[in-house]
Design a protein around this nucleic acid. Structure first.
Lengths: 204, 204
DNA sequence: AGATTCATATAACGATCGTTATATGAATGT
DNA sequence: ACATTCATATAACGATCGTTATATGAATCT
């Protein structure tokens, strides 16, 4: 005997289809360039159905963002807790982020569209919070690296910014290509960590 | 005796005001979220005036992009030619790029809005060409650095990508703040070059 | 079995979008 | 002085936007 009724099941599927269509379109065309009609057409429903599940376009967007960001954010925090050593942590962060992208490139694409695109007043607070939270995670990793003597005693915010650049830009670049996992390999992750820690200059 | 008539002068001013308004709005709200009416209102003209000078919205956008990108691109190429040594070249590229941003943050903002935003079919070729050209400039610098023994003999595309990340992201981040020149200092440029060349790890 | 609620659809609203047919007045050429 | 061209404005077009009043049929409850 199923706990959920037939109605609840199909309803959840409708909502899921709307989320999926919105993710596809928002990540490809941005929030502003995607219309409600684009979304409902791809989901195979009508406009009042969307407005039954979400109060308006901004609400759909916000719930979409919170859904996907919350998940990956929590996993990254846990990943750092489970890992020891600066190099290991940075590598783990990179590989896990690459895996996220390979699993569904639409999510980083949405993230970048949202972050670089025009601010959407209704959700800019949510975005700000999530962005800051992830950055702070990397800052904390750097602070611990400095304390452990694994890093030069410089500005941890600068180090975090630098590492985030080296992590995010390749994800952003390759998430736009047909098969991101082809580029976002463990080898690339290792090369980025190596560059971040030891630089590109010849050692002699 | 002026070469240009009174009519030509005011006409040029009108066109310039349209460019300026478009730059302000496109860089802030993106192409999709900016309406023709926003632009003409800020410029203080009417819609047919815009359509007299530009064939349509995409044409205005393309001419705006070509105008600003062409300028800065050419200057960067010249800068590399005038400079010798890898470290000096990288530092010069960074400082000049920071100066561009400080002079008018709307231009990098437009660049990032355009690059990360939804593709605009009418101008995506133009963007692609300009982006590739600048990346290739950095790749060439890296190749010469490898040949001169200043860099480890690794993938020049990887090195160029890494350096572009470290150059572009701070510009992008700080061009959104009230006073970019406050952050985009020569000290930051030097710190980025140092990190790129020698890494963040402690030297012992 | 009948009443009710829930999830979806039909069809339309007013607002705004990009665009343009037409008019007007100033600068220019003769 | 007058005709013409050039740069701008008035006003409107059809299309699309986000949103919603209303209807309908299926699932649930009594």
């Amino acid at each position: 005997m199923n706990k959920v009724s037939k109605r609840q099941t199909t309803t959840a599927e409708t909502k899921s289809k709307l989320f999926d269509s919105a993710l596809t379109l928002f990540s490809d065309k941005s929030y502003a360039a995607t219309s409600i009609r684009d979304i409902i057409q791809l989901a195979g429903v009508t406009q009042p159905t969307l407005y039954y599940h979400f109060s308006d376009k901004a609400d759909l967007f916000q719930k979409l963002v919170e859904h996907h960001y919350g998940q990956s954010q929590q996993q990254l925090i846990q990943l750092v807790q489970e890992t020891e050593g600066l190099r290991e942590r940075l590598l783990a962060l990179l590989i896990r982020s690459f895996e996220f992208c390979a699993a569904d490139p639409r999510i980083p694409k949405l993230m970048f569209q949202t972050y670089y695109g025009p601010s959407i007043p209704e959700v800019s607070d949510t975005i700000e919070t999530l962005t800051t939270s992830r950055f702070q995670l990397v800052v904390d990793v750097m602070k611990q690296g400095i304390k452990a003597g694994e890093l030069t005693d410089s500005n941890p915010e600068f180090l975090a910014l630098s590492f985030c650049c080296l992590m995010d830009q390749p994800i952003n670049l390759f998430s736009r290509k047909p098969d991101p996992s082809q580029y976002l390999t463990q080898e690339l992750a290792a090369a980025i960590v190596e560059l971040f820690l030891n630089g590109a200059a010849s050692s002699d």
